[in-house]
């Protein structure tokens, strides 16, 4: 069943057009990766899906059977999309625990939120140790863990991950991607991930899209793209 349908999505920052008609679909339960060079429009695609202010968009974006176009970002979140922005985007002055509470801002089931937070502390014990520290004092890896946990506390149907491996140590990256695979497998969370590290992303993805200059230029099952030599040389750089 299709969870997200994007057709002819165009987006501009002021007079600068960045996306020139993106078409993509994400099926429920999939892990889809969006690959592409710097400046191709990957981050802008995710930002446009969330209807973040500062970006004017047009085209069709249907999520769970209803259009997201023109919604406020808070409404997009309420409908079940969580976004882990590039560079983590934690609340540096707030404690780790307050960051997590903020992630559950739209939820009213306080007891279950508590349980979810404890579960995330079990997943990332380093966050539990630092629960009363302000998030600004965390290392890059810890901040990314916090950003992922915070996004998941809204219990999203679709998780958007923007360059989750950027600037992190290999062991931390491996741990995070195991968590993503686990989230998809056991919680059934659908994931759309933007990654520079193509090998890593293709290893957990079911399907992939390659974006170039604001347009989708290639799509296919992750395994196929991973093993096609022509594709690898032309688009993925490995």
């Amino acid at each position: 069943m299709t969870l997200l349908t994007v057709e002819g999505l165009e987006a501009s920052y002021g007079p600068v057009r960045v996306l020139h008609g993106i078409d993509l679909t994400v099926e429920r339960g999939e892990v889809v990766v969006l690959l592409g060079a710097n400046g191709a429009g990957k981050t802008t695609t995710l930002r446009a899906l969330c209807q973040l202010p500062g970006l004017s968009t047009s085209g069709r974006v249907d999520f769970d059977g209803r259009s997201l176009v023109g919604c406020r970002t808070e409404e997009v979140v309420r409908r079940g999309i969580a976004h882990v922005p590039q560079g983590r985007g934690t609340f540096p002055e707030l404690s780790v625990e307050e960051n997590l509470d903020a992630g559950a801002y739209l939820r009213r089931d306080r007891r279950e939120v508590r349980q979810d937070i404890e579960r995330w502390y079990d997943t990332f014990p380093r966050l539990a140790d630092r629960r009363h520290q302000s998030a600004g004092t965390l290392s890059g890896g810890e901040q990314q863990m916090l950003a992922v946990a915070r996004a998941c506390l809204s219990r999203p149907q679709l998780l958007l991950l923007d360059e989750p491996s950027l600037g992190l140590a290999p062991l931390v990256i491996q741990h995070l991607f195991e968590i993503f695979a686990e989230l998809n497998r056991s919680d059934g969370t659908t994931i759309l991930v933007v990654e520079q590290n193509a090998t890593l992303a293709l290893s957990i993805a079911t399907r992939a899209y390659v974006i170039e200059s604001g347009q989708i230029v290639l799509t296919g099952p992750a395994a196929e793209l991973h093993h096609d030599d022509g594709v690898r040389r032309a688009y993925l750089g490995f």
């Binding site: 969330c50 973040l52 202010p53 406020r72 970002t73 808070e74 979140v77 309420r78 969580a82 976004h83 922005p85 985007g89 934690t90 609340f91 540096p92 002055e93 707030l94 307050e98 509470d101 903020a102 992630g103 801002y105 739209l106 915070r150 996004a151 809204s154």
Partner: peptide, 24 residues
């Protein structure tokens, strides 16, 4: 309070506040 948390989240990082559903 929850309202205060929302206020402080907007003060700390307005865009992330939007992304967790806080009406900035």
């Amino acid at each position: 309070t929850r309202l205060g948390l929302g206020y402080r989240a907007v003060a700390a990082n307005p865009e992330s506040a939007l992304l967790v559903g806080i009406p900035k």
